[in-house]
Design a protein around this nucleic acid. Sequence first.
DNA 1: TTGACTTAGTTGCGTACGCAACTATTAGTG
DNA 2: CACTAATAGTTGCGTACGCAACTAAGTCAA
Lengths: 155, 155
Amino acid sequence: MANMNDVTNDFDLEQFLPYLLNQAAEATSHSFEKEYRDRYGFTRTQWRVLANLGKFGAMTARDICAIGHIEKTKVSRAVAALETTGMLHRSPSERDRRAEVLSLTEKGLGVFAELGSMAVSFDRQLRDMLGSDQAGQLQALLRRLMALSPSSSQS
Amino acid sequence: MANMNDVTNDFDLEQFLPYLLNQAAEATSHSFEKEYRDRYGFTRTQWRVLANLGKFGAMTARDICAIGHIEKTKVSRAVAALETTGMLHRSPSERDRRAEVLSLTEKGLGVFAELGSMAVSFDRQLRDMLGSDQAGQLQALLRRLMALSPSSSQS
DNA sequence: TTGACTTAGTTGCGTACGCAACTATTAGTG
DNA sequence: CACTAATAGTTGCGTACGCAACTAAGTCAA
């Protein structure tokens, strides 16, 4: 006498990891996004590109794609935008004339410093809410997940 | 004699939870997205709306917004699309003439069953890669994070 | 050197989205 | 009841994006 409707599989949205990850990502990113959007008119991708350059120093667009798992057209457009707002500077690579080495300008560094410190305190709040051990666990798990994933070229 | 450049705060992208969450969410969602996009031409939001209706049964758009933390215009458009492809059916609510009760059609239920079982096996793969205790931890942490978040109306 | 293949980066086109503004209905208050 | 505020849902407009196609430069081998 099983439920006739057992076509309905045992799928449970609330336990579906991609769904939970998405929700958590949206929820946390969304509030911080307001900061860079309102203050500097940045896109999420622009913020990421800036953050990568700020953290790791001058590098090529291709490197940003690889490190940040960001698709190249997204990076291309973000770089263009950051350049026109004077945040970064492109200089032709000498090793490869197809590539350009990107580096933050003084202005870009300043903005990175500001947003970076806001990010730090935002992150601290999150970690405080979670409790620092749990936050650490979460971080480790996310890292592991990334390491296991097929990596791919990402969205 | 601190580093003159200590405007450079201690921000570390690789430890920034919103960033890690985003990467993990993108990475995991991206591969599953291919399934519903290729097979049914669904948007991520369409898939989520269908999944919520499939899991929780008939409900109003507003409820979907609340449960799934999805913004209402997104839901509105997804519902419209799912209706034109015959996945769901709207009937006017008797309690509130502004609202409409949404329910999956036979076709919608069938599609939900198919995608649901694919989701189950996709999720199982993820959990196998992580190890089931770690997967469980991750799930619990994400839930907790969502519970703590200001919730808001979400993207 | 030349020709086939890969790679760095850009761009055109179509789509999903975010936000603000809108309509229609309901709730609340004197 | 009358009038204001809140709510369910839709839509117009501008933007960021995904994908495929493209240009230009590098690689590799015969």
